[in-house]
């Protein structure tokens, strides 16, 4: 069991059989009064965020989570298909559970699939993925000013701000934590 002193961003707990991840938290206490931890919790099944205030010392049940590394194979309609590379067992996940992460998936990407009570409920992409530029305006040669950017569309449909020197068909390293451009991949 956890208690309120274990609360930090990303901590996964379960309440009434539903898994939640801590999005935000704040310690609050009147000088001579009872201490609480105010939290914003994201329902990991639906994505809905709710507010919940726990009394200090209150027990929290850890969510029975398991992560397995799997390979992304392909998309079929609103289903995303993954495979366990050891057992060749395949798994389908609906788009709702992939959400924004679909912009980081190209065939063959290895991801962590998150299971709650044996049921797949989401994925965590690698911290960095390499994605190709499919569309961007030509940059200006020689302009190296670092605070100037332009927009580029990548092969997955993700739109990012990139430096002016980036050209179409180049491969970029993208930080999936921020969804932003990290660097150009030279190959």
């Amino acid at each position: 069991m956890y208690d309120t002193s274990n609360i930090k961003k990303g901590l996964k707990i379960q309440m009434d059989g539903v898994p939640f991840a801590v999005v935000e938290f704040q310690f609050v206490k009147p000088g001579k009064g009872v201490a609480f931890t105010r939290t914003k919790l994201k329902n990991m099944m639906t994505g809905a965020v709710l507010e919940r205030t726990f009394r200090s010392g209150e027990k929290l049940e850890p969510a029975a989570m398991e992560e397995r590394q799997m390979q992304y194979l392909y998309r079929e309609g609103d289903r995303f298909v993954f495979m366990d590379t050891a057992s060749y067992e395949q798994l389908e996940l609906a788009e709702d559970f992939i959400a924004e992460n679909q912009y980081y998936l190209v065939d063959g990407t290895m991801v962590d699939v998150l299971f709650f009570n044996e049921k797949a409920i989401g994925i965590t992409p690698p911290t960095f993925v390499e994605l190709r530029v499919t569309q961007t305006e030509p940059g200006f040669k020689g302009d190296t000013s670092s605070n100037t950017t332009k927009s580029a569309v990548l092969e997955t449909g993700l739109e990012v701000q990139v430096p002016l020197f980036i050209e179409q068909d180049e491969l970029l390293k993208i930080d999936t934590r921020t969804g932003g451009y990290s660097e150009r991949v030279k190959k």
Partner: peptide, 14 residues
């Protein structure tokens, strides 16, 4: 009910 008192204080009054 001390806990409720402070919940109301923190959420609505303070």
């Amino acid at each position: 009910d001390e806990e409720r008192f402070y919940r109301v204080l923190l959420e609505h009054v303070e």
